[in-house]
C-alpha cells in the first residue's frame, strides 16, 4: 500500500478525493498507529484516493484551547489553515474526535472552511454504499461488544448512530453501558486531562467507566477516539482484565473483517 502525501499529489498536479488528517496520537502513539494504518487499509481497499499531510501536519491546537491557552491554539490553527488552504483542501476525514471537532467547528471563523467527517461517519457511509463487505464476525461472532461514546463525537457533535451502525454491521451483539449516548460518561481524558495528572479525588474516571463497561459482560470495548482508547486500555489493565477484554477502534474491527 502506497500512502501518498499532499506534497506528492501536488507535485503531480493532482487532488485526492479526501485528506486523511492523522492527528498526533495517530502519528506518534504506538497503539494508535495501528488505527491509522487500519484506516489507510480501508481507504486503499475501497479505492478511494486519499492523501496525508505527513510531516506538514501539526497538532490542531485542541489540547491548548481546552487547557485555556487560546494563544497557542490560534497559532496552531492559523498555521494549519495556511497549509490546508495552500493545498486547496475541500474534504477531510479525521481519526480523532478532538481534531474533528476543532477543524469542523473552530477553524471556519479563522478562515478554514472544509467538509470534515470523522472516520466513524466515513465507515458508515462506505458500508451504506456497499463498498465495504464484511465477512461475518469471525472470532467475534456471538460475543458481546460495547461502544464507549467519545464526548467530542457524542455530546459535542451529536454523532451517536454512525459508530453503532458500523458495529452492528459486524454481526456481533452490541450491548450498551448503563450510561450511553448523550448520557455517556467521559473517559477522563478530555479538556487537557490527557496531559496532566487528575486532580485529587477518590477514583480515576477511566476506572469508573471501565467498571461500567465490564458490567455489560462485553469482551471488546469499541472506541472511536485515541484518548478514549488510552484511558479505557489503562482502565482494563487497572482491573487486570487485559487477557479477557480487548479495547479496539472501530476502524480496526472493520479492517479485520473486510
Amino acid at each position: 500500500m502506497n500512502i501518498m502525501t499532499m506534497a506528492a499529489f501536488a507535485a503531480k498536479g493532482e487532488q485526492p478525493e479526501i485528506l486523511f488528517w492523522v492527528g498526533c496520537a495517530g502519528s506518534f502513539d504506538d497503539r494508535y498507529k495501528s488505527v491509522t494504518l487500519a484506516i489507510c487499509k480501508i481507504l486503499d481497499k475501497v479505492g478511494m484516493s486519499f492523501a496525508v499531510l505527513g510531516t506538514e501536519e501539526s497538532c490542531t491546537g485542541d489540547p491548548a484551547r481546552r487547557a485555556g491557552n487560546d494563544f497557542l491554539f490560534q497559532m496552531q490553527a492559523m498555521s494549519n489553515i495556511e497549509v490546508l488552504n495552500g493545498y486547496g483542501i475541500k474534504k477531510i476525514v479525521t481519526a480523532c474526535p478532538h481534531c474533528f471537532n476543532t477543524i469542523k467547528n473552530e477553524y471556519p471563523i479563522l478562515g478554514g472552511n472544509y467538509e470534515v467527517i470523522h472516520h466513524s461517519e466515513l465507515l458508515q457511509e462506505l458500508l451504506n454504499q456497499g463498498k465495504i463487505n464484511l465477512q461475518g464476525g469471525g472470532e467475534f461472532k456471538g460475543k458481546k461488544i460495547t461502544y464507549h461514546d467519545s464526548c467530542y463525537l457524542g455530546r459535542a457533535n451529536n454523532i451517536y448512530d454512525a459508530p453503532r451502525e458500523v458495529l452492528e454491521a459486524l454481526d456481533i451483539s452490541l450491548v450498551e453501558m448503563k450510561r450511553s449516548k448523550s448520557k455517556g460518561l467521559c473517559c477522563g481524558a478530555g479538556g487537557g486531562q490527557m496531559f496532566k495528572e487528575p486532580e485529587k479525588g477518590n477514583k480515576d474516571i477511566n476506572v469508573e467507566r471501565t467498571e461500567e463497561a465490564i458490567e455489560t459482560g462485553a469482551t471488546t470495548i469499541a472506541t472511536a477516539c485515541p484518548f478514549c482508547m488510552t484511558m479505557m486500555s489503562d482502565g482494563v489493565k487497572n482491573k487486570e482484565k487485559e487477557a479477557s477484554i480487548a479495547v479496539m477502534d472501530l476502524a480496526e474491527l472493520v479492517a479485520k473483517f473486510m
Binding site: 498526533c24 502519528s27 496525508v52 497538532c59 489540547p63
Partner: peptide, 20 residues
C-alpha cells in the same frame, strides 16, 4: 511541546510520518 514540536508530546516533527 506544542510550540516546539507541533505535537503535545515530545516527538520530533520530522518523525511524524514514520508510522507509514
Amino acid at each position: 511541546n506544542l510550540e516546539n514540536n507541533m505535537a503535545p508530546w515530545k516527538f520530533a516533527p520530522t518523525e511524524r510520518f514514520n508510522w507509514a
